[in-house]
Structures are given as C-alpha cells and as structure tokens.
Design a protein around this nucleic acid. Structure first.
Lengths: 192, 192
DNA sequence: GGGTCAACCAAGCAAGCGCTAGTGTAAATC
DNA sequence: GATTTACACTAGCGCTTGCTTGGTTGACCC
C-alpha cells in the first residue's frame, strides 16, 4: 500500500478523479468509474488511496492549494491600488474556477462529503484563501472604494463569483476578465 | 397506486423528504431512510411516489412554487420605486431561503439529480422566478439605480443571495431584512 | 540471480441499494 | 352487506456498491 505519499502517479490519478467528480458528483462516481477513467482495475485503485474518501480529500487539497497559489501570484503581479487588487482577485478566482480547474469546483461543491477528520485538516487551507479575500476587501473599504459590513461584503462577493460555475459558458463571448471588470464595477459603482 | 395526485398526505411526506435531502443530499438519502422519517416501511413509500426521482421532483416543485408565490406577494406589497422593489425581492428571496429552508435549498442544490424529463418540466417554473428578478433588475437599471450588463448583474445578485445558505446563521444577530438592505446598498452604492 | 518493490489484476464478499409482488385492513361508497 | 379505495405491511429479487484478498509482473539493485 502506497497511502499518503504524493507520488507523481497519485497526482495524475487525483487529477483524473477531479474531472469525474465534477461531471457526476462525488456520490455518483463509483470506484469502478474512477478506475476505468484511470485505465486500471477498480482493485488497483486502493493501492494508491486508502479509500474513496481519501481520493476526495486529495482532490480538494490540490484544488485549494492551487487557488491559493494563483491568487497570491495575481496579487503580486498587479498594481498596489485597492481597485487593481480587487480586480486581480476576482479575475484569478474566475480563471481558477472556469478554465477547467476541476479540483477547485470539487472543493466548492463536494465539501460536505468530506468526513469530519479530513474537513478539519482542510479547513485551514480554505481559511487561508478566504483571509486573502478579506484583506483585499478591507483595503477596498479603507480606500472608500466600497462600503458596508466587511463580513457581509466578502460573503456576497464570494457568492456572486462562486455561482458563476452554474451559468458561465467559457465558449461564449465573455472572458473571465470581462466578468471581473463587471463585478468590480457593480460593487464600486463606476461605469464599466 | 396513488401517483401524481397531490393529497395532503403526499404533501406532508414531501416536506419530510425535503428535510432529509438537505441533511444528507439526494444520493445519500435511501428510500429506507425516507420511510423511517415518514414513519412507514420502505415499500409503502411507492404507494405515494412512482420512484425516488419523483420524490425529488415533488420537493423541488413545491420549493420553487413557494418561492414564486412569496416573491409575487412581496412585489405586490411594496412601494413602486425601483429601489423598494429590488429590496423586496432580495428580502423575499432570503426569507424563502432561510425560513422555509429545506425545499428551496433542495431546488438549488439537487437540480442536477433530476432526470431530463423532470428537469424540462420544472425549468419553466424556475424561469418564471428568474423572469421576476430580471424585470426588477431592468427597472433598477432604467432608474439609474444600478449600472452594467443586465444579464450579468442579475446573475451576480442571485449568486450572492443563493450563497447565503452556506454561511448564514438564522440564530445570529442579522435578520434577512438586514442582509437585503446591505446587499442593495452594496450594488447601489448608497450608505447602508 | 536472488531480492525488493511499486503497480497492477482477477475474483469475489458482504452490505446496501431501488423497487416489486402479493397481502391485510379499516374506512368510505354503493 | 358487498365492493371499492387508500394506505400500510412482509418478504425478497436482482443488482451495484466500496473494498479485500492473494497473486503476478517487470523494472531496478546489490
């Protein structure tokens, strides 16, 4: 048994699992479906993961870590104005969410399926990501760019962004950048 | 068999099913769990519903219908200014989401589990609800209360509202009315 | 060339799944 | 009083589920 290491093989299998989890949802994805997608037999799967739960945890861990990295990079690369930073975060979030970042979608929509143990471990990662958002929101509030309750505003913004996976069509005319612009314009009330 | 009527008995069973679907998710809820919650044996369940799918469809149908009724009533009862109507819709949405929680949450989060046939039938109901929103957004745009792309704005607002089920604590200090105020203030950029 | 090891497979178990068939029964209807 | 209706029961079928077991393969190592 190979459990709990992070071999390249396991990384690859995790990536493929994410795709299926997005397509079918965690509960509807059987170990046999996973195995077929991976090109192995269902039994072999348990050489890499202790159980099905652990696959989910692995996917979510990678997704959240990815989101964190991308968000941090976006913040480092943009101007240091409150508006630019707000926009950078929104764009990074959307890109992560929409340009085939399966793992991130799973992190958002299958969180409840984690057992308490895994949830506890992973919630720290998620908190780090949300802290990034709250910092940017704080700056925007301080710069008088937006107004209102810090907690509520960040929740509303995250909600608006996370909901995009339900309706956004990446093949359509709007780019993630467009969406980010429009969202920031909406809450800062400047002409788009 | 009693399928497809809407006896009071069936209404009550549907209500109980909604609770379990919220707690466990549709896939994790077995017919045996449903039956136990309803105080009958699993076989008896199929006297009221053709299959498990139909229970889900019944729950979602009731949830959406409820939301429609409440939203229409809220619009009828409020001032005819764009701002009042926007606020009334937001408050109605939140109240639906947070008080009569179960059915509406299922409608939001188990939609994908419907088979194509049921989805087709129910999408008309959902479209009617969304049309209400888009009308209110249109008025707000026309009144210069908010700016931007009609489609995007309504999606963002719905996202912010729907996301509340993930973090809102009805026992906390904030009322649905508070949330609605804050949200409208955020997108119209007036002091809360 | 024997030993090690990750990676895989074939076969299948025990449990649980949605659902069906056939029956019982009390109240309503004729 | 006979028939129908609504609602519940018991028993279990056929299938799928997550996971286990015991063994094989081939690459690499001293």
């Amino acid at each position: 048994m190979n459990v709990m290491n992070d071999s390249p093989r396991r990384k690859e299998l995790t990536r493929q699992a994410a795709q299926l989890f997005v397509q079918e949802g965690f509960d509807r994805t059987t170990v046999r479906m996973l195995a077929q997608e991976m090109g192995i037999k269902s039994g072999s799967l348990f050489h890499h993961f202790r159980d099905k739960q652990e696959i989910l945890a692995a996917v979510i861990e990678e997704g959240t870590q990815n989101a964190l990295i991308i968000a941090r990079a976006a913040l480092d690369d943009c101007d240091h104005t409150a508006e630019a930073r707000l926009q950078a975060m929104a764009r990074a979030h959307l890109e992560t969410l929409l340009t085939d970042r399966n793992a991130h979608v799973v992190a958002l929509y299958e969180w409840r399926r984690l057992d308490p143990e895994a949830r506890d471990h992973l919630s720290h990662l998620r908190d780090a990501y949300e802290a990034l958002w709250e910092a940017v929101i704080d700056e925007a509030l301080e710069a008088d760019l937006i107004h209102g309750d810090r907690f509520l505003v960040s929740r509303f913004v995250m909600g608006a962004l996370n909901w995009t996976v339900r309706w956004y069509d990446p093949a359509g005319p709007r780019s993630p950048d467009d969406l980010a612009h429009e969202l920031v314009a909406m809450i800062t009330q400047r002409p788009a």
